[in-house]
């Protein structure tokens, strides 16, 4: 993990994206996936990115994680330019992608092993996280014994175990049924309120984006551009009643209009 000089401490968890573009080569000529995307995320902020599928949301997330290089523009995380995969990132994907041959506990410990961090002190962390995610009684189970929602909760624990300063989530609840999905939104906020990570979450559900976020980045497709960035002025902690708040519905309606869902 990167260590930061004391002077850089104020940058901790801060993402800065400057005029980022990404062009993919394809058989029918180059495809512009992202065009001139710029934004910044403050420390401990929860930002969601919402847009149609194919608007380059996932590409953006992969570039920030250092898994993909941009065609032009730059990303800095905590004041440092990103040029390769960042171990200071916890990543959650649409599928849980747990190792099916490892128990839940050993899955959560995977980053500790791979980053060669001390195992003994991190066992406690893993147990705490599993407790927080309500999985501590299932720690000796294999992933296949757990429901999809539980598996995804374990994947969130795995993303947090090495105490990264960024949490990147790529449509983490997209594969879950609607009821589980709502439940997972509360779970995620509960975990997030305990471990205030700078979080960037990609989704195509507008209400999910608004419900979770401090700010919502609205993207338009082909090429992926930022249509607007919207401050969500809803109090935390968010409750089921939050969705009945007129400010919530107004926010959802406004984003729908930006994206082009005219029927809202």
């Amino acid at each position: 993990m990167e260590t930061s000089a004391p002077g850089e401490e104020r940058h901790r968890g801060t993402i800065e994206v400057r005029s980022l573009s990404k062009v993919y080569p394809s058989q029918d000529g180059p495809v512009q996936a992202l065009s001139e995307v710029s934004f910044a995320v403050a420390d401990a902020e929860f930002v969601t990115i919402v847009g149609h599928s194919g608007c380059g949301k996932s590409t953006l997330l992969r570039i920030i994680a250092g898994l993909l290089l941009p065609s032009s523009g730059s990303v800095t995380v905590r004041g440092r330019g990103v040029s390769g995969p960042l171990s200071d990132v916890g990543m959650v994907f649409q599928r849980p992608v747990l190792l099916k041959w490892r128990t839940i506990f050993d899955n959560v410990m995977l980053p500790i092993e791979m980053l060669h961090l001390p195992r003994q002190e991190n066992r406690e962390r893993a147990l705490d996280l599993l407790k927080l995610a309500g999985l501590v009684d299932f720690r000796h189970h294999y992933p296949a014994q757990l429901s999809g929602g539980m598996q995804q909760r374990a994947a969130i624990c795995r993303a947090l175990i090495h105490d990264p300063s960024l949490l990147l989530m790529d449509e983490p609840f997209g594969a879950l049924d609607l009821m589980t999905r709502e439940e997972m939104n509360f779970e995620l906020l509960r975990i997030w309120s305990q471990r205030r990570k700078t979080t960037l979450l990609v989704t195509h559900s507008i209400s999910e984006a608004v419900f979770l976020a401090d700010r919502v980045i609205v993207m338009t497709p082909r090429p992926g551009m930022i249509a607007d960035i919207i401050d969500v002025k809803l109090p935390r902690p968010r409750m089921p009643e939050t969705k009945l708040d007129p400010r919530f519905t107004e926010c959802v309606r406004m984003i729908g209009r930006k994206i082009g869902l005219l029927y809202i």
């Binding site: 992969r62 994680a65 992608v97 995977l110 980053l115």
Partner: peptide, 12 residues
């Protein structure tokens, strides 16, 4: 799964 390989890269 491709995501797993991504995870390996993030975890160096």
């Amino acid at each position: 799964e491709e995501e797993l390989l991504d995870l390996c890269r993030i975890l160096h």
